[in-house]
Write a protein that binds this DNA or RNA. Structure first.
Length: 275
DNA sequence: GCATTACCCTGAAAGC
DNA sequence: TGCTTTCAGGGTAATG
């Protein structure tokens, strides 16, 4: 389940083999992802265009193309990019293929089809339906302690878990890193966001960045499907404090980690460390 | 404004 | 062994 560190790792693994390449051909499976793929739009933007950059905003990948277009990708639950030689057998669930001028192919594979592939004009992509409502990226300078504090105090009855999952407030956190950041900050996931006091909020602001940065260093968390564009697993799953550890002892105090469901998503926490 | 539920989807795991 | 059911979750939408 790709969140910010996984998407950042994918961006880093795409750059060496994609920058400067020209797209010669585009193929699609004809099956819809979360939205239908606009094949004609994809071809118009990509074919004959050179890749100028690969960046990330929240959980979105932006592949910047010459001629002023951007290919926007969200990996959903199970999406990944893979490089292959042209003509090599395709993995099941390959939904888009970008043939490159070096004989290779960049492929988008997504079993569950929760991902998104769309194209936009570079100057307008920030105003696209996908990006326009996103809050600041937690690893950017825009995510300040003041911003977090203002959002917390402006919230009404939402739990801190659901507060942090809302991409309109903060873009890039998902189920894994919300649980991890709250544990590191000693905050119960059930606490109302507005009741997080400034001292704990400061700690949370720090732990969000630390948890994400550490996972980026470890090339992300591979729980089920996630691999980078070279097919490599991440290493952060070996360092999780609470996520996926129901019943196991807390690494800090030894109390059994608990799992609860909030908004139909699992939340893992230590009932002793987190108040 | 918020919580809950359903939906999209497939593969893995569990249950029978 | 083999079939069926359950579960996982990012984002969105409908409902209460």
């Amino acid at each position: 389940m790709p969140e910010l560190p996984e998407v950042e790792t994918v961006a880093r693994s795409l750059r060496p083999r994609l920058l400067g390449r020209t797209v010669e051909r585009v193929e699609t499976s004809g099956l819809a992802l979360r939205q239908p793929i606009d094949r004609a739009g994809l071809e118009a933007a990509c074919v004959g265009a050179r890749v100028l950059g690969v960046t990330r905003i929240g959980k979105y990948l932006l592949i910047e193309l010459s001629r002023g277009d951007v290919l926007l990708a969200h990996l959903g639950m199970s999406g990944h990019f893979a490089f292959a030689q042209g003509g090599a057998p395709r993995e099941p669930h390959t939904h888009a293929v970008f043939a490159l001028d070096d004989g290779g192919e960049l492929r988008y594979v997504d079993a569950r089809r929760f991902g998104v592939l769309s194209v936009h004009r570079t100057l307008e992509v920030r105003r696209s339906a996908e990006l326009r409502l996103l809050g600041p990226d937690p690893l950017s300078e825009d995510f300040t302690f003041t911003y977090l504090l203002e959002c917390l105090s402006a919230s009404s009855g939402v739990s801190i878990k659901n507060f942090l999952l809302d991409q309109r407030r903060l873009a890039g956190l998902g189920n894994i890193y919300v649980s991890e950041a709250l544990h590191a900050a000693g905050i119960s996931p059930r606490r109302l966001a507005r009741n997080v006091d400034p001292r704990r909020a400061e700690r949370l602001h720090r732990t969000i960045r630390e948890v994400l940065s550490a996972s980026v260093e470890r090339r992300g968390t591979t729980f089920r499907d996630y691999v980078d564009a070279e097919g490599a697993w991440g290493e952060n799953q070996h360092h999780l404090a609470v996520y996926g550890r129901e019943g196991e002892p807390c690494r800090v105090c030894g109390a059994p980690i608990r799992r609860i469901v909030q908004g139909a998503r699992s939340t893992f926490f230590c009932p002793r460390c987190q108040r």
